[in-house]
Amino acid sequence: MSALAVSGVSKRFGSLQVLRDINLSLEKGQMLALIGRSGSGKSTLLRCMNGLERIDAGHITIGGHALSYAPAALRRLRQDVGIVFQAYNLFPHLTVGRNIMLAPRLVLRWPSARAEARAREVLATVGLSEKFDAYPNQLSGGQQQRVAIARSLAMAPQVMLFDEVTSALDPELTGEVLITMENLARSGMTMVLVTHEMSFARSIAHIVAFMHDGRIHEIAPAKDLFARPRTEELRRFLSSTL
């Protein structure tokens, strides 16, 4: 069974049609990169996958859950689908350790000791073991983003979504986040990312979808898509970004 199946998804914001009949599927352990210009609908599509935005038509199945907006069903889906945001969105009043422990304690109802052990484990995975007691505002942007990845990882999700996670970072800090994501991909995590990092998408993603005007304009294995763009729009997009 695929880890992600999107079929016939459409969405509009008022009079603006942002997604038009989107169809996608992704196997377990694969990475899908969504690329395209600003406003092409790629972030909206990603946010629809864990119910942060509502779809108007179509179906989404992700991490073994059919997307539904009933609160309890949506919470169960979100336990299995992590998301990392452009602005990190760490909780500023909690230490790094407590940021990570919050969901395992409240959602999975783990005792404190078990949640702490898990937090230390995932912090080690992103290489920030020594930051357990630091507050978010004591960390660099790259470190904060790695903590945000660890926070999602602590829930042991089936699928992880990444919404332009390096776009807010200074260029010298993007590398550490990309390496963390690459390691995650190698460990077999199913990942969907919206990204402007073309070289990362080309070298790490299995499938790349180019979105244009609310549609999936082209979708192909990463190497083919970049080497042989079939449409004029993608050719123009690639020449403007590379």
Partner: peptide, 16 residues
């Protein structure tokens, strides 16, 4: 609002 989104995305209930 982004704080709320992050928390909801982790599966917390409204009250939590």
């Amino acid at each position: 609002r982004s704080q709320v989104e992050a928390a909801e995305s982790l599966g917390l209930t409204r009250w939590q």
